[in-house]
Nucleic acid binder design. Structure first.
Lengths: 333, 333
DNA sequence: TCTATTGGTTGGAGCGCTCTAATGCTGTAG
DNA sequence: CTACAGCATTAGAGCGCTCCAACCAATAGA
């Protein structure tokens, strides 16, 4: 249970510790003979550099910290893929940590990540207060994904929820729908822009918006639909705040004996893997998640390596994915 | 962008660096007056200890590394919850890293995790060769989750797939099914025990096993069902190798005009959040995932803190979750 | 021949912390 | 008044590494 140190390698190769250090960092100013001798010794001893000692001594880090607010959500997994891709390209590693949607746990996760003094921090949809974020941003470069910020010290990467909602409404209107309700995401991240986009698009088409309070869960989507049924206010199409909500809505519609999309069309938001399942096959709005990750990592690395200081705001354009839960209206009437 | 050090705090509080160190580690042998003075100075400076320097100096670590083979799978998120819970209780932090199901990337993730010299390592369903695992186990305590190992240096935590498959078969038989097929997981982790359990249970009931080659995806589940339909070999019930496979199977059955469960019953395996969705409502086998995590973390901490050396093998008992995709046979005949 | 220059190599200080052994300081017993 | 605990506090070495300045040939230029 004891790892060899640089000293051990140096001794075995018959060189100084400093030379081993140079070899380990691929310095060009090492003779070929020494280099191979050192590498051979390292190999024989099973040596690999101690990342923490290295970062302590160099006062730099080749690690990016990633705080994922909710590991259960596959959305974040794809963002992480994008981060990982860019980080790896540039010789950086990532360490992940999770806050489990609780501000307290998230704060602790943040502390823990900071204690490793990474080169930068990506926060995926964090729920901690803005002050905690700007405090972190005083210590290292920070980029926020799926959460906006006015702080001039942090970069942000978001999708344009207004555009996404408009795409969905345009699609439904082009199919012939006039009565389209929006199951709202309430306080959830990004619910605001989606709602605004929906309302604006409806008005642009000369239609009356119908915003129904709901949440980002399948149970809430079902509840919202049952409410509409009771009030006899069911539209011919529904735009849910996200995919989970949409799936719940579909269940409630089917429970009530209505067919999707023959009687009611349903559009989700996020294009999670759930939406792509044959059994679900949900028309939805896709966010370029891997691109989120790539942009976030690039933004961070620009600050780390090129010393950029002025903030960057990325607002990505979502796209419509048509599957089988939307069709021209007709079943009701 | 510069964090205060212990020296800064010591200066401000008018004490030595060593005393600050003692306060930071909650040593009892510090007078109350000095303790509050130090804490006050630390607070004012926004000081927090440098985890890497600490671990370098103390030659110990309060971090557990977690390698998740696939971040996209919610299964692992729940295991991580369990790990996190126990680790936090005992004052440990966790850092996560992902291998994206690729042995190469996973190897790199492992290296990266090791370079932080954590107290121990949890590998969730790793795909790297056993030699890489035992090499890691020479350096620190390692526990494997959802993968078995014969190495005496690593602990393992698994579910008893044979028992799970038997539970499913018993349930279907008790509903009156006699012709039950198993959509097999092929090379996938844990597919072997599930298959063996299915075959044994069928034979115990005096029934003929029907193992259909398939995989852990919804597309594969659908393909398997279409194959059975073509050969006119459709049973009255299907036990899928996992939930995704089951959802694909259901889609294919419905596409063929068959009703689930009226015509064919379907049972999944894993009880993922997918299975719990109202729209899916899949009867399935639940694995105690959070318990996996808790046991894994405990096993690690026992090695770290109590110096245990003999290996531990946990084999947990799964349970049946009955939802609405199973019913007595009747539709066919 | 002597001085520069260049490329390879090394000693030593120091990153922020812990830990051991030594220190100073009280208070109590002899 | 000395001796000696017993406690709170501190100096200093060292964890594994990087980085700077210094060093040492060997070669080139004058």
């Amino acid at each position: 249970m004891v790892r060899p140190t640089m000293e051990d390698v140096a001794l075995r190769a018959g060189v100084s510790r400093a030379l081993v250090s140079l070899v380990m960092r691929n310095s060009p100013k090492v003779s070929e003979a020494r280099r191979t001798a050192v590498l051979k010794a390292a190999e024989e001893l099973g040596y690999s550099p101690h990342a923490m000692a290295r970062s302590l001594a160099s006062r730099t880090s080749t690690v990016l910290g990633v705080m994922v607010s909710d590991l259960h959500n596959a959305f974040f997994a794809e963002v992480v893929d994008g981060i990982d891709e860019v980080a790896r390209e540039q010789g950086f590693d990532i360490i992940i940590n999770t806050g489990g949607r609780s501000p307290t746990r998230e704060r602790r996760a943040l502390e823990s990540l900071l204690s490793f003094r990474p080169g930068g921090l990506v926060l995926l949809s964090p729920v901690v207060p803005a002050t905690a974020i700007s405090k972190a941003a005083e210590q290292l470069p920070v980029v926020l994904v799926a959460r906006s910020s006015r702080a001039s010290t942090v970069d942000t990467v978001n999708d344009d929820g207004e555009v996404g909602a408009r795409l969905a409404v345009d699609h439904l209107v082009s199919l012939g729908h006039r009565r389209i309700a929006h199951l709202d995401g309430g306080e959830g991240t990004q619910a605001g822009p989606r709602r605004r986009g929906y309302v604006a698009a409806m008005e642009a088409h000369g239609l009356v918006p119908q915003v129904v309070p709901s949440e980002y869960t399948d149970a809430a989507g079902a509840r919202a639909i049952r409410g509409l049924l009771e009030e006899d206010a069911l539209p011919t199409a529904v735009l849910s705040c996200n995919d989970f909500n949409a799936v719940g809505a579909i269940s409630a519609l089917e429970d009530a004996g209505l067919r999707v999309p023959a009687d009611v069309s349903v559009v989700g938001y996020d294009n999670t893997s759930l939406a792509a399942l044959r059994h679900v096959s949900l028309t939805t709005i896709d966010q370029p998640r891997a691109e989120f990750g790539r942009l976030a990592a690039s933004a961070l690395l620009q600050r780390v390596r090129e010393g950029r200081t002025e903030p960057v705001r990325h607002l990505l354009t979502p796209s419509l994915v048509v599957r089988t839960t939307t069709a021209p209206p007709g079943g009701l009437r």
